[in-house]
Design a protein around this nucleic acid. Sequence first.
DNA 1: AAGTGGTCTAGACCACGGC
DNA 2: CCGTGGTCTAGACCACTTG
Lengths: 243, 243
Amino acid sequence: MRVLQAKSIADQVDEILLERIRSGVYSPGSRIPSESELSDELGVSRATVRSVLAKLAANGFVIRKQGDGTYVNEHVHRASAHFGNLWDLTELIAGNGYNPTIELISMTRRPASEEESLVLALEAGEELICLRRLFHADQRAVILADNVIPISLLREPMDNLDGGMHIREILDRYFHQKIAFVLTDIRSTVLIIEAQKFLGGDAGRPILQLQTTFYEKNNLPIALGLNFFDDSFLHLSLAQAWN
Amino acid sequence: MRVLQAKSIADQVDEILLERIRSGVYSPGSRIPSESELSDELGVSRATVRSVLAKLAANGFVIRKQGDGTYVNEHVHRASAHFGNLWDLTELIAGNGYNPTIELISMTRRPASEEESLVLALEAGEELICLRRLFHADQRAVILADNVIPISLLREPMDNLDGGMHIREILDRYFHQKIAFVLTDIRSTVLIIEAQKFLGGDAGRPILQLQTTFYEKNNLPIALGLNFFDDSFLHLSLAQAWN
DNA sequence: AAGTGGTCTAGACCACGGC
DNA sequence: CCGTGGTCTAGACCACTTG
């Protein structure tokens, strides 16, 4: 009996193939079965197999060669991030080979700054909920993540907040908002004292800063993220297929 | 008479829709015609229209709402980079609203370092061709780009090299290599004196560093890139759709 | 020549949202 | 209810690579 909603056929095929790649059933550098063979074996149409392989290729897991076959990419394991989840910090930590945990530092409220009001399209003085969390990779603090959300969007009481939730889950559960798309600015900055308290090491050293704006489907901004990212320990590495 | 190879139907549809979005025929925030209407108007199947709309949505140009319609995303103009071309520096400069130009600083040859030999899978002491180029945004130097390629891959004399060529074109024309996929590490560092000579400003200030490894279709590394990126002037901003 | 991936079509059914 | 996008199918033809 299924507890959760059934997944789409394509998602199931995606999981099967990724599992085979990760477990080595399809070994690095080797050729995997053809589209026709996979569609026969899995009992789905070739179009469905193709849509999955296209996604895997775009993320660099496989390399496709017309007239030849589809091969497992042996270098993609170096990548820590993939398209569509650049702002998923737990996956980023896991992609670096560490076990991610999230620690809730504080949850406060304060009026929005001028810049925040502008970006979030708020009236002057509207209040924000500020979430400060610390992401650990195997016990080591690596990302300080601040998120701010207008309090006017709050729909459910935020008692007993589980700090380990993904920002997407928090927005869904307490604000009834679904993320439609995301803009991420990647910047280089120096580690400020306030962040150094959490991340340790030398203040003033170069560090990555990820500034994220979350939008819902009607193009309205619903939240901001400001992440200080210790890239001396964690690598931000992107795989991209050509075409 | 066509001079170049005919483009695929999907690519043509892609160009048409992007042009309509950019020119405002489909104005920001408005709903564009449905899949059926587009397939009727353009004389292509709905599946083809869908594949194009899926690509546009993944890059944030449009937002799709089941049961409602497809809308032009009014915020995507802030993005300067899109998936699949993070390493395309001229597009990145253009995405920031500047006119990109490339200046060839030097072309030299030297033996590979130990690390380079490792990454490029070379024998000890093999020689590299080193290309140093400076990317300008409206006359202002913004990216110092070094590329190294094993000399053993060279297939054509590199006389009269056009420094303005894309690295992909250089690899194709002079080395007969086609890029299959790319790994890019994004790091934060401080501006070293050697790069400061070209980029100006204060040495020691934080700066982005993009380290790229280029692979051909057989999983063999063919080139490296090391880009110093002045993000105090140019923004690295990525748009991502949620699903 | 045979087999692969690349492209495209026509049509079916479903899930969702606005009217 | 109707129209929208989401999913999936079966099949055709093409372009390319390899033996």
